[in-house]
Design a protein around this nucleic acid. Structure first.
Lengths: 225, 225
DNA sequence: AAATAATTTTAGCTCTGTCTAATATTACGA
DNA sequence: TCGTAATATTAGACAGAGCTAAAATTATTT
């Protein structure tokens, strides 16, 4: 109450907020999880966790990790909205390729204003998902309920549609695009091998794909209607 | 020789380079000139001048000001190109108003890549001037020769066309737009008063405008064909 | 040519955000 | 449950970029 946050958090603070949001499932984000995601040292993360708490953006308990406050979450979602709208713009209006939009958006999201964001949303026709299938938070931060699950958590015989690809690595994305494993693609799961987590799935053209555990975790699917 | 500059200068360094470029006519930029333009203290400017020299982007002689090296100029022009293309995009595609594009572009120019810039140029059809009439440097840094002069430097009786409005203040721009004093507008100069620098000019609709010295300096004109 | 005004520079701080090395804590496996 | 491995934190540095106050230099004016 009171404590009206007038100033925009810095790009760094924003990056940490997003990382905490993305890393912490429902609980708290670990130091190492955030450090790995942002490619910074653990010490830097500990330091920032304390600062985020000081700014009222996160709750931090040493050795227990950090979780966002309402304000921290709102800020993170604002950045996520910007990021995903910008990705959509880059792909649809500037001719960027699917695997390259993430990196450019990563820098732009810290430079654009809310006005820019909303005008962009208007130009794009208020899309609900970005090019990778990730939901775009509404301007009030609302997110549609997630109805997808990773391919790694499906069962043989199931029929699905790829709803989302959750991976930032351009090399991985290029590869998946080459295989046609992009949002919208229908798949039938042939095998989910417990031993090594390899998932074998057949696409609409009858082509079979064997995907290692990390890839199978990156591909989210929804049950086919 | 050697010394290939791989890393992008920081946003701050870029701002100073632009300020030096804009402030220094043909000679060197003064500490105060840059300080005023960037709204920072003179001490900060002195400090940055030394750093720019260290980076090989400027030549600095204490008490004599700073001038850009070839590399510094190239970097400044790269930012100016980005800035002016972004302004054009904001106006033409996102519906921003004339007086608001500058501020948004000021932040975006530091976040955008060369790839983004060139794709944007393509989308916009490679415009030669931005919404304020300022020339957009080519990607190799080339600028068309300036054939305009400030309204303050004209003579009574002359017939001109507004070619450019050189002012960043939204209040000033809003006012001028209200008067129709924007690039393309034809004017006939009635009086250039030596005493106080007030210029009186009549527009196409026969409306007469009395402009104080600072405004008259902001409006650049070209002889009417 | 002095005296005053304006501009610059220096010195010393501050804050953000990063790092490494050393230390502490927690988790896990035997 | 005890010892090792994995995680976290602390301590201490450092670079970038800004500031104020004091000192120095240059410009202007009488």
């Amino acid at each position: 109450m009171g404590n009206l946050a007038v100033t925009e958090p810095s790009a760094s603070v924003g990056d940490y907020l997003k990382a905490v949001w993305e890393t912490a499932g429902s609980g708290a984000a670990s130091t190492k999880g955030v450090a790995d995601r942002l490619s910074v040292s653990s010490a830097s993360v500990t330091n920032m966790f304390a600062r985020l708490q000081g700014m009222g953006l996160a709750l931090y308990e040493p050795y227990r990790g950090a979780s966002l406050t309402r304000r921290g979450r709102a800020e993170a979602l604002r950045l996520v909205r910007r990021h995903r709208l910008i990705e959509t713009f880059l792909l649809e209006h500037l001719g960027y390729s699917w695997e390259d939009v993430h990196e450019e958006a990563e820098r732009l999201e810290h430079a654009v204003s809310d006005e820019f964001t909303e005008r962009l949303a208007e130009l794009l026709g208020h899309p609900e998902r970005d090019p990778h299938g990730a939901p775009i938070p509404a301007s009030d931060g609302a997110l549609p309920p997630e109805d997808s699950r990773p391919l790694s958590g499906t069962q043989a015989g199931g029929r699905f549609v790829v709803s989302r690809v959750e991976n930032r690595d351009p090399a991985v994305l290029t590869y998946l695009r080459g295989l046609g494993l992009v949002p919208g693609r229908a798949l039938r799961v042939r095998e989910v091998r417990a031993l090594d987590g390899v998932v074998t799935a057949e696409d609409e053209d009858g082509v079979s794909h064997a995907l290692g555990a990390p890839l199978a975790r990156s591909i989210l699917v929804r049950h086919r209607a």
